[in-house]
Design a protein around this nucleic acid. Structure first.
Lengths: 128, 128
DNA sequence: TCTATCGTTGACACTAGTGTCAAGGTCAAA
DNA sequence: TTTGACCTTGACACTAGTGTCAACGATAGA
């Protein structure tokens, strides 16, 4: 598919798709007319990238995670750069910290909303 | 405590602490000489703020979460702005999305590292 | 063939968060 | 009283990611 369709199917501005490519996260083929041509599986990858960016992971790091995210299922296991393993291990730990932090604060929000709901059930009912 | 100690105890640059204050996340008292004076419980709050920022939550949103994070335990439940409840509900959902995304990708990283470990136990052992 | 729609690149601008520096005030200890 | 560590505000700069616009080429349909 071309960039317009990928934009629609992922809800991601073409501007960002080009940016991701520039950062080495995406490498679409080029048609004879210069248009970018994306494979279907990239829809998922783009969504994954967006989710990670939205979760505070910079593209620089996402790029290093690519061998783990490969839909073209990476047989890259054999020649794994030991350096990469260190990076991945570190990032995995940081992701766990983020998850913990988010979960803790989500629970706090939940508790607060429940408290409000008990105090005035009517107003809160529509929201929760 | 003053800003220097808070900086040490949270590992957060004073520059950022002033920025958080400017964004309304922190409101330290002022001593006669103009110095900022922080209560002890703010150490935790700062860590919480940092974790959220690092997880992609902008200060604008964190500010709205403050009633949930209150150490001076918010009795604010009664006069809860219904508007706020909507915002909180939405953010809670987005946090859940982030958690899911992070967990999924963390698992992918784990799987990859385990695969590498099986392929060449020696090199991977030190890392995992 | 004209036009609408989509694609291309390049440039400039904006926000968020942080780094860094300058110019100056406070305070304790030598 | 001078030095050094710490505080203040204000300014400028930088990165990441995105918005937006300009100028242009490609393509499909009336």
């Amino acid at each position: 598919m071309r960039i317009g369709e990928l934009e629609k199917r992922t809800g991601t501005p073409a501007r960002s798709l080009r940016y991701y490519e520039q950062q080495g996260l995406l490498t679409p083929r080029r048609l004879d007319n210069g248009y970018r041509e994306y494979d279907d599986y990239l829809v998922d990858r783009v969504l994954q990238i967006r989710g990670l960016i939205d979760s505070g992971i910079p593209t620089r790091i996402i790029k290093q995670m690519l061998p783990c995210l490969g839909k073209p299922h990476t047989i890259v296991v054999e020649d794994a750069d030991p350096e990469l393993l260190v990076v991945l291990g570190r990032e995995r730990d940081r992701m766990n910290q983020r998850i913990e932090c988010l979960a803790r604060n989500r629970d706090a929000i939940d508790a607060y909303m429940r408290a409000v709901a008990e105090a005035s059930p009517a107003r809160a009912a529509a929201v929760v």
